[in-house]
Design a protein around this nucleic acid. Structure first.
Lengths: 187, 187
DNA sequence: TATTTTATAGACCAATCAGTTTAGAAGATC
DNA sequence: GATCTTCTAAACTGATTGGTCTATAAAATA
């Protein structure tokens, strides 16, 4: 009998992709075991709290990744360069729109009511980090906030349309448009 | 024993709201019967094909509504007035962002694979109808298309953030910004 | 190498799932 | 008012759900 041994960080990442593809309700334990190759025993060993704990830890993992890779870099010295880096990181993370935003997807149905603050904070911090960079690049606080909100709205909307249309180009087009608009505002 | 008698159009509308709130996988037959007060007998009488038929008919119903209330009005004589009307209709339909886009939500998870053309056509037709109005208002076809895409992306993104943040104002702010941007382009 | 800890496999559970069936009530037609 | 069609209620089905448990394999520690 062959056995495959997993480590928890790998389990989190594997299960995350299943939730991302199927949504919280759509991701049944059997679909999770089938797609990740982790047995139920392994899953409940790592996540005694079941699906709810899996989703909570996945969201915490995503949040930590964005703090390190997106939000904190936006606080660095050169705000213009930081914002340019954000477009690159965002395009890579969402695989040019082929990967959806798990937290955005959770927000749309009543899964939101299970994790309201995690969902709210993720988007709030993104908007605040970007608005902060725009402010340090010279924009008035109010204008920075409006533009940051427009950017995060555009990213989410483009992810929805990319999947709805099966269009691999719309996400890149949207990022390019937002990049130009924010770039022009801080020139 | 009291019995409530429903008509099919009412059944479609009632079930639609449950799918909208819970998503396709999240909407179980028991949650549908509980929230709509339609019994299983009634539901399978109206929709012998079960959940899949319910969702298909709901999407067709939404599509028809948008054709009548949004897409066709955009083809009327005065394109500027038609576009202004679209912002009103959109704000009302999505209840200032408190109501999500069922078709956008279906696009995000593998529910999309059940109804790929219905989902794709809904967004394609919206973009095309709006681009057509912008063209007739004087814009070059390419520019009209880009702006129309930006508008539909913005609407979807704002719906996601409205729910994620529990913010009643962000949808209206986004619509106002898009209205101004499209209005300025055709002046 | 012996022991302890960590992790896997899969049988098992009660509850819920989508869907079927049947009996009869309400509404429409005659 | 009798007949026929439409619709509802709820019991029922087999399959699947999320979750538990036990035996044991692998890894870490001693």
């Amino acid at each position: 009998m062959t056995r495959t041994v997993f480590e928890k960080p790998d389990a989190v990442a594997l299960v995350a992709e299943v939730f991302r593809e199927l949504g919280y309700e759509g991701a049944s334990m059997s679909s999770i075991t089938a797609r990740t190759k982790l047995s139920k025993g392994s899953l409940y060993h790592f996540f005694p709290g079941g699906k709810e704990q899996m989703a909570a830890e996945i969201m915490a993992h995503i949040d930590a990744w964005f703090v390190t890779e997106v939000f904190r870099p936006l606080e660095e010295d050169d705000p213009r360069a930081a914002i340019l880096g954000m477009w690159e990181t965002t395009d890579t993370y969402f695989r040019s729109g082929r990967r959806v935003c798990l937290i955005g997807a959770f927000a749309l149905d009543e899964t939101r009511d299970r994790f309201p603050s995690a969902i709210q904070n993720y988007f709030l911090r993104w908007i605040e980090a970007l608005a902060g960079a725009l402010t340090r690049a010279g924009l008035a606080a109010a204008e920075a906030r409006v533009l940051a909100e427009e950017a995060v709205v555009g990213i989410q909307g483009a992810l929805t349309l990319a999947r709805a249309l099966g269009d691999d180009a719309i996400f890149g087009r949207t990022l390019a448009r937002l990049k130009e608009r924010l770039g022009a505002a801080v020139e």
